[in-house]
Design a protein around this nucleic acid. Structure first.
Lengths: 155, 155
DNA sequence: CTCTTGTGGTTTTAGTTTGCAACCGATATG
DNA sequence: CATATCGGTTGCAAACTAAAACCACAAGAG
């Protein structure tokens, strides 16, 4: 089931998360989970994907510790799917995706849903990458550095 | 080729970007592009994916305006693939993905590559979502709001 | 008790996608 | 001219996806 994304034995810090999430559907499931959806049927209705696929995706997300099943919530005999702490850690990623979408996939005046501060109802700020000293960083202001190699290790 | 992700006619602000990116491979290509890779062969060597797949992914990224081909750079007879401004807009998403990976996919002392400020060589700060007034926002502090419906429009 | 409906899946099956490998054309290179 | 390298395209078997049918269980309805 797990499709190997990278050929390197030890996948990098980007490929490893991608492998865990699984695919786009999973990300949409996670987004719906952030929106409060919990039940199999809710996800299926919201996303319109085949039930076997949803079943497989949920199973994968649970297997990777991104979601977990809780026995009930309203006494019903069924289980629900909720985000774990690890799953909640994906929130910035979804925000980044959404903001990118707003920037480039909508006409200037095309209406679209907006993420707002629940308290003030104002739109949230943009995600910004900052240095330790608070300077804002663009992509070209950053570098990837290798971990210090322990003795004897070779690339 | 384009696999429809959502059944809804007008895809939401999350699904639309996902559809444009294409798949995980594309995201890894984009990451490599941020790392300075430009040539077909460089991507292929770095990612180890089949050439036909790479070819298709690059074509898709170009078609969606995320990358573009530039005729040369060192006088070679070949073209190179570089990120457009739209593609560069994906930087926060990649950072979010990387930070999530660092948080949950590495043992506490497992070495991994780190994103650092080029100027100071210090690791970058975490991405944080903030309200207009500067408060930090967690997922549960936010809501999605629908656009104001124009007259006559119905859900 | 039996019939029907709704939920939460699994199985079946066909269609699509993937990716290895082989091939191809266009430069260099010897 | 022979050969290699780069940037792909093409063919095809294997893997994966997804629509639909099916199944199990629980709750009501009659």
């Amino acid at each position: 089931m797990a499709k190997r994304i990278s050929h390197k034995d030890s996948m990098c810090g980007v490929a490893r998360p991608l492998d865990a999430i699984g695919d786009w559907w999973s990300l949409l499931i996670i987004r719906d989970a952030f929106d409060g959806l919990r039940r199999f049927g809710e996800f299926q209705k919201s996303l319109g994907l085949a039930k076997n696929i949803l079943s497989a995706r949920l199973r994968n997300l649970v297997a990777h510790g991104i979601m977990e099943t809780v026995p009930a919530s309203d006494g019903g005999p069924y289980q629900e799917y909720v985000l774990t702490r690890k799953g909640q850690g994906l929130f910035p990623l979804l925000v980044a995706l959404r903001q990118w979408g707003e920037d480039f996939f909508f006409e200037p005046n095309e209406p679209h849903v907006t993420l707002v501060d629940r308290a003030t109802k104002l739109p949230v700020r943009r995600l910004e990458l900052r240095a330790q000293d608070g300077r804002m960083l663009m992509a070209e202001d950053t570098v990837i550095v290798l971990p210090p190699l322990a003795a004897g290790e070779r690339e």
